[in-house]
Amino acid sequence: MSAGNLGIALVAAAGVAVAAVPARADTDYFGAKPAPTEIKYRKARSRTAGQKLTIGGLAAGGVLAGAVGLYFHLDSRDAADELSADAEIVGTWTADRQATYDRAGSSGIKAIVGYSVGALLLGGAVVALWKTEPGEDEVVLTTRRAAPTLEPVAGGAVVGGVWPW
């Protein structure tokens, strides 16, 4: 190969080598990066004291009414169980038994009222929670220049940085 041919071959090889290099081969992944200057995050807003009181009151009232409903439900069930009879003769229909029968009915109505009021109040609490949803604020924290730290330790040092904001 003559000297002229050798030169052409080297130029061609260099061209092929350049063409094979990835497009971002020039990115310096290990180089210094600019320090972030701000941090953003979302912070939930608080409900007002009045809103909290309303929601809490509705929920507590709902639970209380439900508990009252449950009490009368159990009382009604006990009274009904006391009187229920399938086939055998269990006794005489006295005034006491009539009173128990009436109690089963009236406690049953009270139970339904209690459950209904409880459901309405709890439903109201859920609606109030939904309607008074306060949303979120975006908070942006701007950083200052980092202050490098250097702490000598045995056999070397610990290098760090401090970013107050």
Partner: peptide, 21 residues
């Protein structure tokens, strides 16, 4: 729960199980 309450409040009394008061 309310429907359950309704069901539970009704005594189940069969025919002939009580003497008349």
């Amino acid at each position: 729960l309310a429907l359950l309450g309704l069901a539970a409040c009704d005594p189940d009394i069969g025919s002939g199980t009580y003497y008349c008061g």
